[in-house]
Design a protein around this nucleic acid. Structure first.
Lengths: 187, 187
DNA sequence: GACCCCCTATTCAAATTTGAATATAATAAG
DNA sequence: CTTATTATATTCAAATTTGAATAGGGGGTC
């Protein structure tokens, strides 16, 4: 559903063909907020079309490229979008942290390897923070506040993740990952 | 992969049947960290068994219940787990925020409805923070530090989310979601 | 000039996830 | 005493996701 919602949201701005949608999504870093494989995008587009929520406006044939089918959102689609937004907020898909499972098992393996990998991960997390901040900054004067909140939220979560990784890293360096009984939150 | 990793991690502690695994996972709130439907758990168990990473130890027949197949992790499975941990840390599955997409489109719909739903969402987020903290607290003296970090991390992310939701809520109340140009980060 | 990667746009088979269906007993609630 | 819910354990068809395959042209590099 979040994929369908994203598609409808973008088609509300202007008519587009699926490939164009992926480009815009990447431009806005939506691929950091939801899972976005091309396969599932085309699938979602098909489903929306089947349901009459979007419809083909035009098919552009080029001699050597695949045809582009440009879609537009229908009135039914607009109503559907509203429904989806409310429904998604109501029973919000939880936010998962798949890497954390792996990290929670690191006490079982060679600490030196973990230490090195974590250093890389921290460097990457730092980039993500910077990137998220920049995205936020660049969009202040461009997008409505609700969209800006999306970017701000990502920035905050990236910061939290970085801080957490650094905290974990300290324990790896100190070879404390097997300890039991010492609280992490200082108090 | 995170599902397989979780299974291997638990089977390392002791032999279990799939249903028992789901129970332990819920006990430890792992279902907040990774997606955990029973269907995919059984699927993952089958795959692990096919690959020789785990093996059936015993099948318990009861007169009126389905049979329980108890699995144990093999040496191959232990090696595989180590590989998986390293691989997962290396190219960590990103953390997605599926609800945020819906929230970023809220400027398009009836603000009163959004306001009410957000209030509910905030209340829930508060519960999640408390719950995450409690889980962390209760496990200080019980689990190794790396696992405690998992719980601490969840607590931190929940707090971040709550803070963010409150910030968004203020803008909904002030009917500012359509504004453009005003930064969110005070400065 | 040869090689390699990226861009354009989509499709498809195979892998995986979803979530309802199954069937029974025990416990709780009214 | 009856009805509802919970716990037990797993399976399966249907929905969805994955990621490689396609295929021609353009641009950069050694």
């Amino acid at each position: 559903m979040p994929m369908k919602l994203a598609i409808l949201g973008l088609l509300l701005e202007r008519d587009m063909h699926p490939y164009e949608i992926t480009l815009v999504m990447k431009e806005r870093s939506m691929d950091r907020v939801i899972k976005m494989q091309t396969g599932s995008l085309y699938y979602a587009v098909d489903k929306l079309a089947e349901g009459g929520h979007i419809e083909a406006v035009e098919v552009i044939h080029s001699p050597d490229r695949p045809d582009k089918t440009i879609y537009r959102i229908t009135d039914k689609g607009k109503a559907f979008m509203e429904q989806l937004i409310l429904q998604q907020i109501r029973k919000s898909d939880p936010m998962y942290h798949p890497v954390h499972i792996a990290l929670s098992l690191t006490h079982l393996i060679d600490q030196e390897k973990v230490e090195n990998l974590l250093e890389e991960r921290i460097r990457e997390a730092e980039h993500e923070v910077n990137f998220a901040y920049q995205l936020y900054e660049e969009h202040i004067a461009v997008v409505p506040r609700s969209v800006l909140h999306l970017m701000y939220g990502r920035y905050e979560h990236c910061q939290t993740e970085l801080k957490w990784l650094k905290c974990l890293y300290e324990d790896v360096v100190a070879r404390r990952l097997n300890d039991i009984g010492r609280p992490i939150i200082p108090d």
